[in-house]
Amino acid sequence: MYSLGIDIGSVATKAVLFDGDIVDRVILPTGWSPRQAGKDAVIELLKKNGINQVNKIVVTGYGRIAVDFADKVVTEITCHGKGAYVLNNKVRTIIDIGGQDSKGININKHGKVIDFIMNDKCAAGTGKFLEVTINSLGEDITEIDELTRKAVAEKINSMCTVFAESEVVSLLAQGADKANIIMGIIDSIAARTVSLLNKINITDEVLFTGGLANSSQITNQLTKVLQKKVKTDTNSQFAGAIGAAIIGWEELQ
């Protein structure tokens, strides 16, 4: 018996196959059609594992409403809570930074969401913010850790993605070092995230999930600003999909 969890984010679609344990996972770019991306992820996962069908499909993420093959649709807040708890059951706060939003989620000792906070109406502090500003430097988002290894942050003042982009351009014009500008962008994301987290109580271990958790520089900076160890997991980006798969699995039991 299998359950399948799909997290269709604004940038990447993650899918996890589950049989009481994580069997396999895939990640694909979401592209312009969240529905197609979800479908492709299912097909790829089934093919890779030589399975014809699964017993339950739970879909989450911003594209969750676009699919027509879901047995259940759950918000990414509940799924990230569940997924993070399974990755580390000592975790009580989750920082999830994805392509278009950032969230702080508090869970109790049973992995149930008890409080959450979400950015509103604005891309400040999200993956999109990072992508737009990094692209304006002609660099790729996956290279930021490498690029900033010895960097000293330039101050980026603007929280607004559009204004920050022009700030980056003028810093370049003033001859600032590219790596230092990128470090400044990372600082800005960490500062924005921590100010969001101030609205919820952080009582215990903190896990960083979502695509930006792949960056150790962002994780370190969050730890520094939050003055609390922020952990990640090799499955951090899959936390939402794992949570979705488990919710499906629990319904099968």
Partner: peptide
């Protein structure tokens, strides 16, 4: 109605609690 999608996620997650 600019915040409808955001509200949808928040309210759904709140109900899921």
């Amino acid at each position: 109605s600019a915040d409808i999608e955001q509200l949808k996620t928040r309210i759904s997650a709140f109900l899921e609690m």
